[in-house]
Design a protein around this nucleic acid. Sequence first.
DNA 1: AGCAGTCTGGAGAGCGCTCTCCGATATGCT
DNA 2: AGCATATCGGAGAGCGCTCTCCAGACTGCT
Lengths: 337, 337
Amino acid sequence: MEDVARAAGVSRATVSRVINGVRNVNPAIQETVRQAIAATGYVPNQAARSLVTRRTGSVALVVSGAGVEGEENPFPNQVFADPFFGRVAGGVVGYLRPLGVHPVLLFAETDAARAEVVDYLRQGKADGAILVSTHGEDPLPKLLVDGGLPAVLFARPPEPLPISYVDVAHRTGAKLAADHLVARGCHHVATISGPLDVLAAQDRLAGFRDAMAMLGHPYIPCVEGAFTLDSGEAAMERLLAEHPDVDGVFSANDLMAQGALQALRRHGRRVPDDVAMVGFDDSSAALACRPPLTTIRHPVEDMAAELARLLLAQIEQPDRRVTSVIFEPTLVVRESA
Amino acid sequence: MEDVARAAGVSRATVSRVINGVRNVNPAIQETVRQAIAATGYVPNQAARSLVTRRTGSVALVVSGAGVEGEENPFPNQVFADPFFGRVAGGVVGYLRPLGVHPVLLFAETDAARAEVVDYLRQGKADGAILVSTHGEDPLPKLLVDGGLPAVLFARPPEPLPISYVDVAHRTGAKLAADHLVARGCHHVATISGPLDVLAAQDRLAGFRDAMAMLGHPYIPCVEGAFTLDSGEAAMERLLAEHPDVDGVFSANDLMAQGALQALRRHGRRVPDDVAMVGFDDSSAALACRPPLTTIRHPVEDMAAELARLLLAQIEQPDRRVTSVIFEPTLVVRESA
DNA sequence: AGCAGTCTGGAGAGCGCTCTCCGATATGCT
DNA sequence: AGCATATCGGAGAGCGCTCTCCAGACTGCT
């Protein structure tokens, strides 16, 4: 930087001002400085910059609760198996990149890892954290809030916490599914729920039952799944065994719907003629299904982008009031219902 | 840090030595310092540390060539749709985390983005880069090498470049598939290749044809796919139309095999009885197939870990000789063949 | 006991930047 | 012309750490 200043015949301060576009600098001098920068091939040092600005220009993208507690898991990869996380990452990057902010990938499936995340932020390696929890009882949000560290959440925290988050209107989505199944003429409707310790799963189930009740169907059989392909297949098997006359199913996510479809095929049930199937998420699994899955789409990318925006705002002014933004899902009609 | 030093009655230098475990420090003093650290709740500032060590403790995990060149793509998410990338990320994190190194997620699908990656490293925001290219003509590796920036590659670069990489023995994998199909008694074997501008696709095709020739099958029909589900389905359609007697197929990746399986089902061909199918990658798609896919597994996580190791070595001693590590794939027999 | 050699803690100089002051120059007003 | 006011560049003090150098204490040898 000294070199640039010398080459341009100005002081370091002026070079700094040109680079950061702060205050007015004579356009002629600005041009001289730029040329000097180009000539010397100067690139500012991020560490030095961070040291004084107390900003790193990066945020932690934390996937929490990814593995089994206490289990040795050298390769925390199953997170990515669900394309959902990829969409989140895409949305976050889409928003942050134009601002020159970069996400650091962090996994926090054990208590030790969670402590590391807190340290990571404490040490100023990132300015804040975007949390994507895969299960309900994640202690990390509270740790972060208690530590006064800027953080935001994908999905509403199970216990009330002064933290900003985005979420989807699960109940509205479930209602969309209910309306569609009933409009199709389904009379024996059942549902495959997600793990009921997850808030989203609860909301989807409750929303579905409420909507169905409103439509004159007070009793909706339900089998609990685990948001996985296999659990969906197993749930459908049970549904078929216990309620052979089922002609419409709402699955709390696409992956389970895909599994359910496989079970239906094995039992010779045609979809959608014999049994109609509606999923949730509009993940890539929905397109991989045969027939392609009718599903509830939430704007994950937009939600993730909004989440990134909330975090940046929080970093900018830490004593800011927390907010939540709820997105409305939409029904995507394909062939399965 | 000053506070810690005062609290422990030592100098800053000693505190630093205790924290970094460098040189011998009197165990008694060490203990005092540790207690002082705990008492003051001190956390070292990463920026200050980086400023002098010229190390950030983070590496860039770059997904290159993720989107369509020149196309506006605010959400670069389709990368994650392929679970392969998730396994890479898992492997990298698995190796780096115990060393306190963290990966920063970077996308480089446009020239502008590629320049940003180079700048990112130049500015010292990361110590090096792990590149995962999705297509052959990626100019980024060369940019990095020319810039003298530490970088390593997943998969062999199309043009020779002084850069370390890991790869899988594609030909060996293809041979495994050929042996298996022939051993099953297939007589009319065809293959669905990947996009032939990708080296891996070329190798898998050539390896398969060579192995089949060695087994007495000199002519192997091939349809080129694009490593996607749909392209696999379309390729199988064409294969079925042009070679109705086909009874064994080697697909250059699992996703295409999954698509091919759907086409076969639609045509009423039983798998594996009428047509046997072997995929490549052992991705999660292989398990989602019905029947589950026999496929060639490469140890992606191990490869990614090794790649991370190579990068760290390179960062440690920049003038180090470049190396390549080739991993042997294995055959995973499931039900499709 | 005396000396070279080894070990350990402290002092202090930066690392490369930003940003607050300050002073110098240009501008607008009476 | 003379003053107050706005504008813009420079000087220099840190930001929080690491690490080299140095001095003092201690060891083992003759």
